[in-house]
Measured scan of single mutants.
Amino acid sequence: RSLKHLCRLKIRKCMGRLHLRCPVFMSFLPLPNRLKAYVLY
């Protein structure tokens, strides 16, 4: 697996499933929209 994929998995694990599904939580993250979309992919 690529480093990019492993990073996405780690971020998702740290955030938890409930936060990933909450659009309000995701909108408050201080991340560029492209990065938010990548994490959610």
Rank of each mutant, 00 (worst) to 15 (best):
R1W: 11
R1V: 08
R1S: 03
R1K: 08
R1C: 07
S2C: 02
S2A: 04
S2I: 14
S2K: 09
S2G: 13
L3M: 07
L3V: 02
L3R: 01
L3D: 04
L3E: 07
L3W: 10
L3T: 01
K4R: 07
K4Y: 14
K4V: 07
K4G: 07
K4Q: 03
H5P: 02
H5D: 05
H5E: 10
H5G: 04
L6G: 05
L6A: 12
L6K: 10
L6D: 13
L6Q: 14
L6R: 13
C7W: 12
C7V: 14
C7S: 04
C7N: 03
C7R: 00
C7I: 13
C7M: 14
R8Q: 09
R8C: 10
R8T: 10
R8M: 13
R8V: 11
R8H: 04
R8A: 12
L9S: 10
L9E: 14
L9C: 12
K10C: 06
K10Q: 08
I11C: 00
I11D: 05
I11L: 08
I11K: 00
R12I: 12
R12P: 06
R12T: 06
K13C: 06
K13W: 07
C14W: 15
M15Q: 02
M15E: 01
M15P: 01
M15F: 07
G16I: 12
G16N: 13
G16H: 10
G16E: 15
R17I: 06
R17W: 15
R17C: 13
L18R: 00
L18Q: 01
L18G: 00
L18E: 01
L18F: 10
H19Q: 10
H19L: 11
H19C: 06
H19P: 04
H19V: 08
L20A: 11
L20R: 04
L20E: 14
L20K: 12
L20N: 01
R21E: 02
R21L: 13
R21H: 05
R21Q: 01
C22P: 08
C22D: 00
C22A: 08
C22Q: 02
P23G: 13
P23L: 15
P23A: 14
P23K: 15
V24E: 15
V24Y: 07
F25D: 13
F25R: 07
M26Q: 07
M26L: 11
M26A: 08
M26H: 12
S27Y: 00
S27D: 09
S27N: 10
S27A: 09
S27E: 10
S27C: 02
S27I: 00
F28G: 08
F28Q: 11
F28D: 09
F28H: 13
F28W: 13
F28V: 07
L29A: 04
L29S: 05
L29E: 01
L29Q: 02
L29C: 05
P30V: 10
P30L: 13
P30Y: 09
P30R: 15
P30E: 15
L31F: 04
L31D: 05
L31W: 06
P32G: 06
P32Q: 02
P32E: 00
P32D: 00
P32R: 03
P32F: 15
N33K: 06
N33M: 01
N33G: 13
N33E: 13
N33V: 04
L35Q: 00
L35M: 04
L35F: 12
L35N: 01
K36G: 02
K36V: 09
K36I: 05
A37H: 07
A37S: 07
Y38I: 05
Y38P: 01
Y38E: 02
Y38W: 14
Y38C: 02
V39G: 01
V39D: 00
L40V: 07
L40D: 08
L40W: 09
L40A: 08
L40S: 08
Y41R: 15
Y41M: 14
Y41G: 15
Y41W: 11
Y41N: 09
Y41A: 15
Y41T: 13
